[in-house]
Design a protein around this nucleic acid. Structure first.
Length: 431
RNA sequence: GUGGGCGUAGCUCAAUUGGCUAGAGCGCCAGACUGUGGAUCUGGAGGUCGUGGGUUCGAGGCCCAUCGUCCACCCCA
């Protein structure tokens, strides 16, 4: 038997409704915030990610699905969303429209990782980007969209871990200071941190090794060393978040793993997610667009993992979905009924009634059983007797009572009954 | 990439120290007089015990490999 590739998942009927629910909330919220959807290819030229994500990152070094196509091009399944959105923005010169450009995407991402709960080789992200907005208001808007979504889904009480990692004006000095601080302790650090020491000393700050954590306790913090512009930006962001009533914690250890971030970085952590606790993460990347050959346009955005979000919703019991609307089952009592069933079904469907009929040639008894399982509101029985009189037997599946209705009036009558029924039928049930 | 747990019908699980044709519940299919669901009863289908080797008179239980899954590390959403 051929099975799905490792680290991928099938989203089956029964589960897909949860995805549709979350996706629906996302789309309606994006409309509210006036972010517009953008869809980019699942694969891109490998070089896009080398430059966009950063050659020193783990994602690029060991997690990309890269292949050579028949034309000899090196292509890569996208490991994250921002690089592609930037690419499309530049390729189509969308900056020519002026002002801030606001995009969102809802798309699969691919990383060659060791699968774990909440960590797959193909996962799905909801992400947003704002290009061309330098002010902290944009950072706040992006964060407030993420929080609005979580709140709307029932996940109140999550707080934002916030930090600023400075800009090209203040980071080099801090970086130097960090290296000076860690240098005497170098031997005590884990092998990974020893490697990071030269290449990306900021990463020493979020190492989880016991010894490294201990060493970093008295490490200089960037928040005290931001340049005046970065400080002002960061203070403005905090001020706005307070105005919005969004709880946040300053967390000097939040350092993103992607190279492109400047100033604001943030994460939203979910409880009960084990080691994969980051549901949403993002920040500002003012140098990225220019470094990819575009004009000096600033950016902010985040990515939010849908699998992790769904995991949180399930654990918290927040998935109260409304049941599907009622259904009509057209059952055939004999061969004549069977011949007429589909045409009747078509008639009912044209009237907007959700309809099902037997496709397996089973007995009337098992057709009714099937109707029961589908939780049909009515079974419409059709056989020689009915056809001779031009009627159908309509069985109310809840009460078991039956009546005969002329075929011509069936659609109209059922629609009318439906309206009466809908009123008492909207208690939410949990799937 | 590193370390560890687990893998028996569609699902949830059984199977005394290695020992008869590997079982149950749920689900599925069919039947219980004439064209009628849910309850009950009866019957049935469905497993190369993840896969491949090995040890043994004999392996679902042991050993090795491999694949998958879960957990931790790493990384990240």
């Amino acid at each position: 038997m051929i099975t799905r590739p490792r680290g991928t998942s099938d989203i089956l009927p029964g589960e897909v409704e949860r995805w549709q629910y979350v996706e629906g909330e996302i789309r309606s919220l994006c409309r509210l915030f006036n972010f517009r959807e953008i869809r980019t290819p699942v694969f891109e030229h490998t070089e896009l990610f080398l430059r966009g994500v950063g050659e020193g990152t783990d994602i690029v070094e060991k997690e990309m699905y890269t292949f050579v196509d028949k034309g000899g091009r090196s292509l890569t399944l996208r490991p994250e969303g921002t690089a592609s959105v930037v690419r499309a923005y530049l390729e189509h010169k969308l900056y020519a429209e002026g002002g801030a450009a606001k995009f969102y995407y809802l798309a699969p991402m691919f990383r060659y990782e060791r699968p774990q709960a909440g960590r797959l080789r193909q996962h799905h992200q909801f992400g947003v980007e704002i290009f061309g907005a330098p002010s902290a208001t944009a950072d706040a808007e992006v964060i407030s969209l993420a929080m609005a979504l979580l709140q709307r889904l029932g996940l109140a009480g999550l707080s934002v871990h916030l930090n600023s990692i400075g800009c090209p004006a203040c980071r080099p000095a801090y970086r130097q200071e960090l290296q000076d601080y860690f240098r005497p302790h170098l031997a005590a650090l884990c092998p990974d941190c020893q490697r990071r020491f030269e290449r990306n000393p900021l990463r020493l700050l979020d190492c989880k090794e016991e010894e490294c954590r201990r060493v970093r306790e008295h490490a200089p913090q960037i928040l005290q060393r931001l340049c005046p512009e970065c400080r002002e930006h960061f203070e403005s962001l905090q001020d706005q978040l307070k105005q919005l009533g969004i709880p946040f914690r300053l967390d000097p250890w939040v350092v993103r793993g992607l190279d492109y971030y400047t100033r604001t970085v943030f994460e939203v952590l979910g409880a009960d997610l084990g080691a994969q606790s980051t549901v949403c993460a993002g920040g500002r990347y003012d140098g990225l667009i220019e470094s990819m050959g575009g004009p000096p346009v600033p950016g902010v955005g985040f990515g939010l993992g849908l699998e992790r979000l769904l995991l949180l919703l399930e654990k918290g019991g927040h998935l109260h979905l409304t049941p599907p609307g009622p259904l009509v089952f057209v059952a055939a009592a004999d061969a004549a009924g069977s011949r007429a069933a589909l045409a009747l079904t078509q008639q009912l469907r044209r009237a907007g009634l959700t309809c099902e009929l037997d496709l397996t040639g089973r007995s009337l008894k098992s057709q009714l059983k099937q109707a029961d399982r589908l939780r049909a509101a009515w079974a419409v029985l059709l056989g020689e007797r009915e056809l001779a009189e031009g009627v159908a037997t309509v069985r109310d599946m809840e009460t078991g009572s039956e009546e005969r209705l002329p075929l011509g009036e069936l659609a109209g009558q059922l629609s009318t009954k439906l309206k009466g029924r809908n009123r008492k039928d909207d208690a939410g049930i949990t799937y």
